[in-house]
Write a protein that binds this DNA or RNA. Structure first.
Length: 503
RNA sequence: GGUAUCGUGGCCGAGUGGUUAGGCACAGGUCUGCAAAACCUGCUACAGCGGUUCGAAUCCGCUCGAUACCUCCA
């Protein structure tokens, strides 16, 4: 793929519009995505968010861009309702070091990303590894007059910033600072040492008992949650870069404050395009542990939940995500997962059939048949779907249309010589590119068949059954089929003999 | 309470001022010893009520419902 040949459009949540994507430096893309806070096992909603960005990353790569994809690990500064650091809370409860908590759940997160076949980012910086950069950024913001120190803590002066930089604060989230003030007066909380409710912490002075603390010019303490992303995106992608992404729940205050910090430190905007992914619901409502409307990724993969009729594989989950646009709320249901499972398996089967189609490259005469044109149109429309704000649902719909052509060709409902060999080759390449490179799917149906030993045994069993069938010994034939079914193996009788798959 | 987004056929879900999205399920058919699988065909919806328009599911208003966010924390 050549980047110059396609026009990519991105819904930029900063402008609220769909815009043509033009990178800062031709051929290169810098993308920052807010990663997980590693204080707990990864949530299904996180799986959707990071899979959405993985597909965006993969499509940019497919278009030929050289992408630097930075996704952080938050291992300090993200506080709980009670003002305790999430890592420290985990450490206190489990009587271990905060870094053990971070390590444990970072590994868990990486395992899940691998399971879902998400590509690793180019750089995965940790907040605790960039304390110096964060302190320097606070200093710059102080020097430029947009922050103040109070009892060893440093706060961002949101009102001053908003007054001197009209149109910046609130642009991303649609908030109006005056309204924020008005709202907060009614439920003002007394513990604030900030000048103004809209101000937020850049540096927090440690309280007695805080475990994760560092020295700074202001106090022994720790950085504010919003600061790490500003400091690390600047360090690895520059003051201004192409794309900043994250879950929609981070838009305010996290991303709004990030923008303010970057402006405050350098007088310029961080990202030119902001992408926000949407939430994952379960049975029409938000996932909630306390309401019982909740499943973990592990439960999904094991089927161990009253909300599920069976286990679903990671690739079925990925396919489920692909069926919706990343910016839409996606509702997960058992019935929907069953549908996705079936559709995913069919897609993999169709691809196998397609890749085995003969291609006689000698009869190319430069002509285009009606079928050629229809196939090429669907291929183009699949790409146009991806170009239009990474619309995987549209792309998938056209692959399904193409699947029908593959079956018709394989069944000879469409004679093979009615389709030009170069179109067949193009079709094969399109399926490989979309399924594996762009969508990031893996063919689990193939690997699920198992070892050479199993393959050999199955070939033998099916051979014996074929002999029985040839002699119309249906009792033996059905006995084998039923016994295999009981073991979770489905036998499919086709014209060219029997094949098998795991159920 | 405020701000924002959304509400599509049995289910999931794209899209959109006038044209079949797609998948699953379902029904009929082909194939088959039977079944399964596979394939073909069918299934035309946009929360409710008003308004704008030659024409709206798509624009506007209201109502109801869902979700997100609401300033270290929600």
């Amino acid at each position: 793929m050549n980047t110059t040949k396609r026009t990519l459009k991105i819904s930029n949540t900063l402008s609220g519009k769909k815009e043509v994507f033009t990178p800062l430096h031709e051929g290169f893309v810098g993308m920052y995505v807010c990663g997980p806070t590693v204080y707990n096992n990864v949530h299904l909603g996180n799986c959707r968010t990071f899979t959405s960005f993985d597909i965006i990353y993969r499509y940019l790569l497919h278009l030929g861009y050289r992408v630097r994809y930075v996704r952080n690990i938050t291992d300090v500064g993200h506080l709980t309702d009670d003002g305790e650091d999430r890592m420290a809370q985990g450490a206190r409860i489990n009587k271990i070091e905060p870094m053990e908590v971070a390590q444990k759940y970072t590994l868990d997160f990486h395992d899940m990303m691998r399971t879902l076949n998400n590509l690793p980012p180019s750089i995965e910086p940790r907040a605790t590894g960039h304390i110096l950069e964060q302190i320097e950024m606070v200093q710059r913001i102080l020097e430029r007059g947009y922050a103040y120190e109070r009892n060893g803590s440093v706060y961002f002066n949101t009102r001053k910033f908003a007054q001197e930089n009209p149109g910046v604060y609130g642009r991303l989230s649609g908030r109006v600072l005056d309204e924020l003030m008005a709202e907060s007066r009614s439920n003002l909380k007394s513990q604030d040492e900030k000048d103004h409710p809209a101000d937020f912490a850049l540096w927090m002075k440690a309280r007695p008992g805080d475990l994760m603390v560092w020295k700074s010019p202001w106090s022994v303490g720790f950085p504010g949650w919003h600061l790490e992303c500003s400091a690390m995106s600047t360090k690895y992608l520059g003051q201004t870069f192409d794309i900043h992404g994250g879950g929609g729940d981070l838009k305010f205050p996290h991303h709004e404050n990030e923008v303010a910090q970057n402006h405050g430190a350098c007088g310029c905007a961080p990202a030119r395009y902001w992408i926000h992914t949407n939430m994952l619901q379960l049975n029409g409502a938000k996932m909630s542990k306390s309401e019982g409307n909740y499943i973990t990724p592990e439960q999904l993969f094991s089927g161990d939940s009253p909300l599920l009729s069976k286990a679903y594989s990671p690739m079925v989950l990925r396919y489920y995500f692909l069926q919706a646009h990343y910016a839409s709320v996606l509702d997960m249901t058992d019935e929907g997962l069953l549908a996705a499972e079936k559709a995913y398996r069919k897609m993999m089967e169709v691809n196998k059939i397609l890749q085995q189609l003969p291609a006689d490259t000698t009869v190319y005469d430069g002509s285009e048949s009606e079928h050629d044109r229809a196939i090429l149109r669907h291929i183009e429309e699949a790409y146009e779907g991806m170009d239009d704000d990474f619309n995987t649902a549209i792309a998938l719909a056209h692959l399904n249309e193409l699947s029908s052509y593959v079956h018709k060709i394989a069944n000879q409902q469409i004679p093979l010589n009615d389709v030009s060999p170069w179109v067949i080759e193009r079709l094969k390449a399109t399926f490989r590119a979309f399924l594996f490179d762009i969508f990031g799917l893996k063919d689990e149906t193939e690997s699920a068949n198992g070892s050479d030993l199993v393959e050999g045994l199955m070939a033998l069993i099916l051979d014996i059954r074929a002999n029985a069938r040839a002699q119309k010994d249906w009792a033996t034939s059905d006995k084998i089929r039923d016994a295999l079914a009981a073991l979770g193996i489905a036998v499919k009788d086709g014209k060219e003999g029997a094949t098998w798959t795991r159920i």
